[in-house]
Nucleic acid binder design. Structure first.
Lengths: 213, 213
DNA sequence: TGCAAACTGTCAGCCGCTGCCAGACTCTCT
DNA sequence: AGAGAGTCTGGCAGCGGCTGACAGTTTGCA
């Protein structure tokens, strides 16, 4: 009661905000899964946790932001893994290994969020746009790390941007295939991503002689 | 008046529809350029060609569709060029050369539309999502052609999808760089696309020794 | 010329989203 | 403990994209 707050702790206000935010994400995702993305209004989501629609929009700029919030933080952790890779590593390899690293470090909660969000995406293709939009800004930061590691200047050398775009695009196809396969196991998603990343060099080269599977 | 219509000709009704549609696209793009995408309402666009908002939405499912309509037909022509490539050609080369072919066949009107649409995209990044969404469906059809030419089955071999995703992603980066460069010459855009496509094999391989520029 | 089909305008309404204002809550300082 | 400042919330009004329904007009064809 009378104790002063030490730095790093949070007051009641901030704890409440964080809890409300979490509730909104959780409840929103559940509703999306139950009755579809378009079949769920922002007012419903707000009401399901006992706040007004106006408050909903104080926590999330858009309805789509709910989904991005569910997987927030994952980007940061991936970037951290990427930065931790040795600078001399071939860039595509670094991206591949960083993906593996960061995946293995994901806590179960993140896996569940990821799986939930991915399911919403599979069932509501309209939402993919928003996520891709977010991916583009994520791409920016990945390219920056690649440029730093390889020592090239993005202004004059487009390779970091090209490689990053390729990386993100390949993840996109893996994601789509994973969704189409009906799997909800995120390990399958990781496997698909890694497989396809390995395919890239041979695929862009001319030699399609040896067919897979 | 009393003449019967020969096959291939269009009646007054269809001509009117086509003209109205064109007017809406043209007027819409102009307004977007003049006062921004969000600064232009669908009602304004409709009024600018003398129809009601309701009619606007009978021609275009969404406001964003206006922009897609401006570059409609380009996809088809690209696919035609791609199908015309020899089947034995390395797939990435085929995509590259098809891009060149189809570009050289574009009439000046298409160039202008493309340039206008690209400018709208540069000035209104929010619209990019919609275009990317359209690109994803375009991607589907490209992958189908690639699979056919190379004789692989997309169900078991992800390479057509991977290659196509890479292709589209690289075009995306070229587009962005072109926009950032401030150029409005579509030839510069083509050059950027071709350059970056050529960079891909070396970029995904490890050898970043030789720097560009 | 007259009928059926296609097209359009009007209206009412839903939903995402925002600005504004008043009231409630939290935190801090005394 | 209490007052003041700052923060958070709900309610309201409103805009813009978008849709369904209905009625009136235009076009195509016989």
């Amino acid at each position: 009661m009378t104790e002063t707050r030490t730095s790093g702790e949070q007051g009641l206000r901030e704890r409440k905000k964080a809890r409300l935010r979490e509730s909104l994400v959780e409840s929103g995702l559940r509703l999306f899964l139950e009755q579809g993305y378009h079949g769920t209004t922002t007012e419903e989501i707000a009401a399901s946790v006992g706040v007004s629609q106006r408050t909903f929009f104080r926590y999330f700029a858009t309805k789509e932001d709910l989904i991005l919030a569910a997987v927030a933080g994952i980007d940061e952790r991936f970037l951290a893994s990427l930065r931790a890779r040795p600078a001399h590593e071939p860039p595509l390899t670094a991206l591949r290994e960083a993906t593996r690293d960061h995946w293995s470090r994901l806590d179960p909660r993140s896996h569940r969020s990821l799986s939930g969000a991915a399911t919403v995406l599979r069932d509501n293709p309209e939402v993919v746009d928003a996520v891709m939009s977010h991916c583009r800004s994520h791409q920016e930061r990945i390219a920056a790390v690649i440029a730093e590691h390889t020592g090239v200047h993005r202004a004059s050398d487009p390779r970091p941007d090209v490689l990053t775009a390729v990386f993100v695009a390949v993840i996109g196809t893996a994601h789509e295939a994973w969704g189409a396969s009906g799997s909800t196991d995120t390990d399958d998603l990781l496997a698909a991503v890694l497989d396809r990343l390995d395919l890239v060099p041979g695929t862009v080269a001319g030699d399609w002689g040896a067919r897979g599977a």
